[in-house]
Design a protein around this nucleic acid. Structure first.
Lengths: 110, 110
DNA sequence: TTTAGTACCTTGCGATACAAGGTATCAAAA
DNA sequence: TTTTGATACCTTGTATCGCAAGGTACTAAA
């Protein structure tokens, strides 16, 4: 019960920054969807396929991401996503928004 | 367009921590709904009635909040919300979850 | 030619944020 | 004494979105 409650709270917080996390990861290196899922899981941000795929499509449609296909030696081709210039701009805006929220919570919890 | 985009991003981030903010405010002082809205607005967390009322009811039903009615000299009676013991426990869990996410983003953006 | 591994994507349900609209109380002005 | 304005409560309907579940396709090895 309470456990569940807390998991909900965490996932709610994670959801709020999910797009920010995706752009942050892609800012360092291009990546394909399954790879992204693993990198985010390593960073303790849980995200599943059914969440990620539509989200990547949305971000691509907003012009934040572009992609290219690359052949793989061990399975089907991979769709590598990369940040666009607009994506980098938006990422900077996210940095600001994030800083603001962190400050806000510092104050609220002080 | 882009403006809108960024507003969406901000509000998404805000949404993720909204419950945390509410409990944080109530941890300092009991408050009634309209008062909460103003305090959060001052802290740059925008929340509207249609969001807050159902959310307070949810938190009350989860046993995190309790309320009492108090007469007011300038209008209808006010429903003052207060943190329960369970609410305080959950708030501490939120502190942990929040710290974890802040650390995660520090690393992702480093 | 079947199985295992990897990678892509979609569908349907449930939760929820928010705009808009509604009710009730009190006090002061008309 | 009725209307207006301020304050406070709450609900309804719509749209969005996360996630579980299910589905397709390619490659290599058994």
């Amino acid at each position: 019960m309470t456990e569940n409650n807390i998991e909900n709270i965490k996932s709610q917080m994670r959801r709020g920054v999910l797009e920010y996390c995706i752009l942050s990861v892609l800012d360092k290196n291009d990546a394909y969807a399954s790879e992204l899922i693993n990198k985010l899981k390593d960073a303790r941000i849980i995200v599943v396929e059914g969440t990620l795929y539509p989200l990547l499509t949305r971000q691509k449609n907003q012009g934040l991401l572009a992609y290219r296909w690359e052949e793989s030696t061990q399975g089907p081709p991979r769709k590598y996503y990369t940040l666009t210039d607009k994506g980098r701009e938006v990422l900077q805006e996210m940095d600001k928004a994030w800083k603001e929220i962190v400050e806000t919570l510092d104050i609220l919890r002080k």
